[in-house]
Each structure stands twice: as C-alpha cells, then as structure tokens.
C-alpha cells in the first residue's frame, strides 16, 4: 500500500544534508556533456519544454517535479526514458530521479487511463460514504484499486484527504472536484466519462484528460482558468450567514473605537506610530540571531 519503500527512505540518498550543502546550479550542464535527446518516446518539443521548466528556477533541479508531470503528460506515465531524459537535463543519475519519482503518489509507473478517478477514503469522507462509493465503483468497473478499465478510460484509485471535507464524500476526476457524491452519482459519473459525455466539475471546469491535466501541473496553462464558479456553496456558508445577520469585520476606521484600545485616529496616525516602532524594534532585532 505504501509507495514509500522503507528501505529507500534514507537521508543518505542525498549524500550530505542539503541543509548544509547548497545545491549546485546545474543549468547548461547537460549540453556540456553532449547528451543525446529525443529518444524513448519523448519528442524534441517535449525535451525542449523540459529544459524550459528547468530554466524557470534559480537552480534547475527545482524543476524536477513539474518536469515529471510533463513526462506523464507526454507518455501517460513516468517512463524509464522520461526518467533518463530528466536526469540528463539536470545532471543527475537516473537512479536519483527514479528514487524521487517513486516517492510521490501522483507519479504513476503504469499507463493511466484518460480519466483518473480518485475516491477519498480518508476518515471523514470514508465515514460520510466514501468507502461505500469506492466499493460500488470497484464493483461497477470490475477493477481493483490502482487498476485501469480495459477500454483504457478509467483508472480507479482511493486517495487521501483532498482538502474538500466540507463537500464530503468527495471524488476527484483528473484532480478536479466532484463534490457531495453518492454511490449512484459516482457510477453515473464514470459511465458518462466512459461514454464520452461532457462532464463538469461540480465547482470547476469541464473535465479534460489526465494527460492534459498533467501538462497544466507542469506549468503550461490551458485556457480553462475562467471556467466554473468562484466557490462552491459550502465555501460560502459562513459568508452568507454573516450577510443575513449583518455581521462584518470591524471597519478599518473603527478599529480603535471598539472600546478596548482607544486610538486617536484611523490609519494615518497608526502608520506613523508604527514607523517609529519599526525603527526601534529593528535596532533590537539586530542583536538577535
């Protein structure tokens, strides 16, 4: 069940503690070594985009996670060739990159279907019905956890808390929220996906393919940011109750008039006082560390 092999989880993976030794910049290194690119299913355009990702960061190696997302977008999984290409670009060994790719659950070493369906079975969602939804989907699709349907459309996995507990039970499709699911709605969902009907996130855009999603995660945006609402209904409940009751945060000007701390006047005066305080505190702080 755990993607983290205990025996691999050693600090010595990194050689010395990275807190002590700065990562060496590795930009431009791959070309110095005269490595060949473009082999193993990643075409030249993808390789050049992998380089582009590495170049976004002050130190190229920081690009590795998004680079692996791009590999998945291009190859449908993390392939050995993808690992080697990332390693070559960053001046790492393939073993190092493989050790990182296997640490993170979003990286898959088997082909993922067009739609990755993740059912939250962490405690709250499980109790609220996630376990029953997951069982129903396994049965309905006739596959087990982390397997893909024969038509290559659906990969089913149970996932950990996806930060949408106020919409429990939650199902994710290609990492878009499908809120407040039931066994019935979830089977309808996967049927729609398999039959190519348009599916929209309950508070987001139309669902793209898993590979397209991975490309966005690699830092190459699509044009869907403006789709969907600002927020789902549960995100707004407190705000709406406040509006009904006429409750607000204190107005900026009335900050001092709550009776606790009489302050002469609004912002301007406070600013000046703060500036003075900043100077004196800055002096105190200099002595620290």
């Amino acid at each position: 069940m755990s993607p983290t092999e205990p025996s691999e989880g050693r600090a010595s993976d990194r050689g010395v503690s990275s807190a002590m030794s700065p990562t060496e910049p590795s930009e431009g290194r791959a070309s110095d070594r005269g490595v060949k690119f473009g082999q193993g299913g990643l075409d030249d355009a993808v390789v050049s985009e992998l380089r582009e990702i590495a170049a976004r960061y002050p130190q190229a190696r920081s690009g590795l996670l998004p680079m692996l997302h791009l590999v998945q977008s291009s190859a449908g999984q993390v392939t050995p060739e993808g690992i080697e290409t990332c390693a070559e670009i960053l001046g790492l060994s393939a073993a190092e990159v493989a050790g990182i790719a296997t640490f993170y659950t979003m990286y898959k070493r088997r082909q993922v279907g067009d739609y990755h369906v993740g059912v939250c079975t962490n405690t709250l969602c499980a109790v609220m019905g996630g376990d029953l939804i997951f069982d129903r989907l396994k049965d309905h699709l006739d596959i087990a956890n982390d397997e893909t349907t024969e038509d290559r459309k659906i990969t089913l996995e149970h996932v950990e808390c996806n930060a949408a507990c106020d919409y429990a039970p939650v199902v994710m499709v290609n990492w878009e929220f499908m809120d407040n699911q039931t066994p019935e709605s979830a089977t309808q969902l996967v049927d729609d996906l398999r039959e190519g009907r348009e599916v929209r996130s309950t508070r987001g855009p139309r669902i793209c393919t898993w590979r397209e999603a991975e490309r966005v995660l690699a830092g190459f945006p699509d044009d869907q940011a403006d789709e969907g609402p600002s927020a789902g209904p549960a995100s707004l409940v407190g705000r709406e109750i406040a509006r009904e009751k006429g409750w607000t945060a204190p107005s900026g000007d009335a900050a001092g008039s709550t009776g606790q701390q009489p302050s002469v006047s609004p912002v301007g005066a406070a600013e000046q006082a703060d500036t003075g305080r900043a100077e004196s505190e800055a002096k105190v702080e200099e002595g620290k560390e």
């Binding site: 707004l236 705000r239 406040a242 009751k245 409750w247 945060a249 204190p250 709550t258």
Partner: peptide, 14 residues
C-alpha cells in the same frame, strides 16, 4: 464587541 462572524478573507468569495 466584534460580530460573531467577520468575513475578511472569505468576503469576496461569492
């Protein structure tokens, strides 16, 4: 006494 709910960060969500 401040109000029971004080939307600041959530104020513009809708």
């Amino acid at each position: 006494m401040t109000d029971t709910l004080t939307p600041v960060l959530t104020d513009n969500w809708g």
